[in-house]
Design a protein around this nucleic acid. Structure first.
Lengths: 186, 186
DNA sequence: GTCTATATGGCGATAGAC
DNA sequence: GTCTATCGCCATATAGAC
């Protein structure tokens, strides 16, 4: 199944055939249909397993009594690590966002993201009381998410350096961007 | 051709058949092959046209003598507007980032994004001298990009309000997040 | 449970008339 | 330039033996 997840993550639903999945599973095509009624079911099971495997266990962060700023740093670092360690998760999530199937996105929101997002909302309202908590939480997620998403393109943009892809540098940048006053010249 | 762009943006390369494209173009399948040697060429032409249509004409912003902070606000607002006005562009870009074809991403970087990104780098180093310009520029793009990308999911998350999707509210949030000191409680 | 064999249909692409 | 007709292939899915 983990091979199926990987294939769907890399090539998308329409990019993977039952034949490929059968080979990856060391099974004949008919063998696949013994376990799943059709391709859609297989795909949805793959997504479900990939996402719930995470279980997004950031609970130790939320439960610690570290100061909010440290919690933010830990969260950003952990999220970056989860995404970098499991590119399949990142890619599958992007595919699901693109498909934008309302039913499946609602399941995702309720089952996978809801609790973590609530904690992130709390943290946001503590650290950034002058901003709407919802927008602030999305912004934090955006910074992590999109930095990774843009990396394949960024490698060809001016001023790019490989060190900008390291997890520590990204964490430091994102956290200080969020927390430190910018010294601006008007 | 704009119908082809729309189809590819919504369903991805593998999700659209030549037959669909033929119907959309009011042509027979063979008719399509009079103009394009194969499906790949048609797709690449669609991408090219969709992206260069933008030409990303933010030049008036860069050339103005407005203070840097105002330029930032104008840029964020304009980029949000471009993305919201042309969802096909946004979706097609996401598909291209997911495919991560090195050759095509390099073309994209060189032909479409390079000049605008250079301007954004300049602005970033003016406004945020304490941050690496590259990371800062990517962060600005990330905030715009991912807020939109996460909208379909965000609608099912706690604390969501429809007003958070308005272009003015998003602009205000992103700009003030970047420019204003956060009043944090340790 | 897993296989071979096959049904049925859509796919990308082409031939050749007009 | 645009069409109808068709090719060969691969897709999803099923039937039925073992």
């Amino acid at each position: 199944m983990s091979l199926a997840i990987s294939l769907f993550a890399k090539k998308g639903y329409n990019g993977v055939s039952i034949r490929e999945l059968a080979i990856a599973a060391n099974l004949s095509v008919a063998g696949i249909y013994h376990y799943f009624p059709d391709k859609q079911s297989l795909y949805q099971e793959a997504v479900k397993q990939c996402f719930s495997n995470k279980a997004f266990s950031f609970s130790s962060i939320w439960q610690s009594d570290a100061p909010p700023k440290d919690k933010l740093r830990l969260f950003v670092h952990s999220l970056l690590k989860v995404m970098l360690d499991d590119k399949d998760f990142h890619n599958l999530l992007q595919h699901e966002l693109l498909l934008a199937d309302e039913v499946r996105l609602k399941l995702l929101a309720d089952n996978i993201f809801r609790d973590e997002f609530n904690e992130l909302l709390k943290l946001s309202s503590q650290l950034f009381p002058q901003q709407p908590a919802y927008l602030m939480a999305i912004s934090i997620l955006s910074l992590v998410f999109s930095h990774l998403e843009l990396q394949p393109l960024g490698r060809f943009l001016p001023d790019y350096q490989t060190k900008y892809e390291t997890i520590d540098m990204l964490t430091e940048h994102i956290v200080s961007l969020l927390l430190e006053k910018s010294i601006t010249i008007d």
